[in-house]
Simulated scan of single mutants.
Amino acid sequence: MVDKYRIGICIAAVTFLLFFTTPIVHDFRIGHFAYFLIFIQIIFFNDIIFYNSYKFLKKLFIIISVFAIVFWVLNAMGVPLIYYKCTPAFRTESVLDNYRIYGPVLSLYRGNMPIGGGIERICGVFAEPGHFGIYIGLMLAIEKFNFYEKRNLLLLITGFLTFSTAFYGIFCLGVLYKLLKYKRITTDIIRIVAVLFFTAITLLFFSDRFVETIYGRVVENKREEVSGVVDLLDNRVPDSHITKFESFIHSHDALVGLGYDNDEMVGTNWRGVVYRFGIIGTVIMLLLIFSIARKGSMKYGFLLAAIALLIVAHRAYLMFSPAIYMMLLTAVYVNRTKESFIIKIEGLDK
């Protein structure tokens, strides 16, 4: 299926592919190049294919979430569990980083302590709790944060137990979206606040471990004062990198960046995108995001764009492959399919 919307995304995606994955500007990245070629083809799939594929993906996430919560509760209760310990080479943050694989799910540890300290953070089958939290947040965005459905409540609790700053940010954007859409506090919002409140009260039994996990890991050994979102993100970046970035942005390299394989700048923060791919690369990335998010209602488009920008700011390296863009595109196509179903049903009722 070809229309102006899909053609616009295709043009943005091809531009992204040429700039980010080919040796025209930087190095040839064959993996990302192949992924984006597939993504460009998928753009033109029929909406119903996206809808059916999403239903399967959601069932998979529900199964993973159930297992993740069960093992999390057992660990929290101190039940001895059999696990396989794996120390991956790609965990460069610390030589102590290791995974405990329980079978259907895993957990990330630093030495003998859960990553971030305190209590264990749910990872599901992902490399980090933050990754799982981001994808759960995107899935809830596809659902338009409808918590009348019990499965979405399960995803909400799982996302909460990832203790992911990004998930909490996406959740807040979702609540803001519902407030702007309905212009009142709905029973749906009361429902999710109640669920999170009782979940938090339960976790307070862990006392200092809970506080350390949900808050202390963000500001520990960093700046003592956090006055806003910018400070919260900057707390995850060494001062030396911020100073280096300020020098870089005024140099002649700022236009196209210094290339992907550059370890001089942290890759999680938005500065990592600009440092590696310059102002031009950053603009191309934003164009791809907004070319996808512009379809449908303005409020929903702003929600998708805001979530994508939050991911750029918090886990920028996830935006170098097409997975996040695919989730954003799925959100548009799935909700467009749902709307067409509603229109057909209403037409039959008349």
Results as ranks from 00 to 15, higher is better:
203 L>H: 06
83 Y>I: 03
69 I>Y: 00
158 T>A: 14
215 Y>H: 02
161 L>F: 13
26 H>P: 06
296 G>W: 10
81 L>H: 06
231 D>H: 11
109 Y>D: 13
173 L>F: 15
196 L>H: 02
210 F>R: 11
347 G>A: 12
56 F>A: 10
198 F>A: 06
140 L>Q: 10
136 I>F: 04
109 Y>A: 09
107 S>P: 00
202 T>I: 13
26 H>R: 09
255 L>N: 02
97 D>A: 11
214 I>W: 11
244 K>D: 04
158 T>M: 12
97 D>L: 13
323 A>E: 12
139 M>Y: 07
68 A>G: 05
188 D>A: 12
3 D>Q: 08
307 I>A: 09
58 K>N: 03
67 F>K: 14
152 N>D: 10
226 V>L: 03
177 Y>P: 06
121 R>E: 00
272 G>C: 05
280 I>E: 02
11 I>H: 03
213 T>G: 12
94 S>F: 04
321 S>E: 15
158 T>C: 15
55 K>A: 08
103 G>A: 06
332 V>C: 03
118 G>I: 07
143 E>M: 07
301 G>Y: 09
11 I>G: 01
142 I>D: 00
240 S>M: 07
130 G>V: 00
288 L>F: 05
184 R>C: 13
173 L>Q: 14
153 L>N: 13
48 I>M: 08
342 I>Q: 04
108 L>G: 01
1 M>N: 09
179 L>P: 01
185 I>H: 12
288 L>T: 02
13 A>H: 10
194 A>R: 14
223 R>K: 14
298 M>V: 10
141 A>C: 13
54 Y>G: 03
268 T>S: 01
199 T>G: 05
203 L>C: 13
85 K>S: 11
350 K>S: 03
275 Y>N: 06
114 P>D: 12
136 I>D: 02
340 S>M: 11
6 R>G: 07
115 I>M: 09
27 D>R: 15
274 V>C: 10
9 I>A: 06
60 L>I: 03
141 A>N: 09
94 S>I: 10
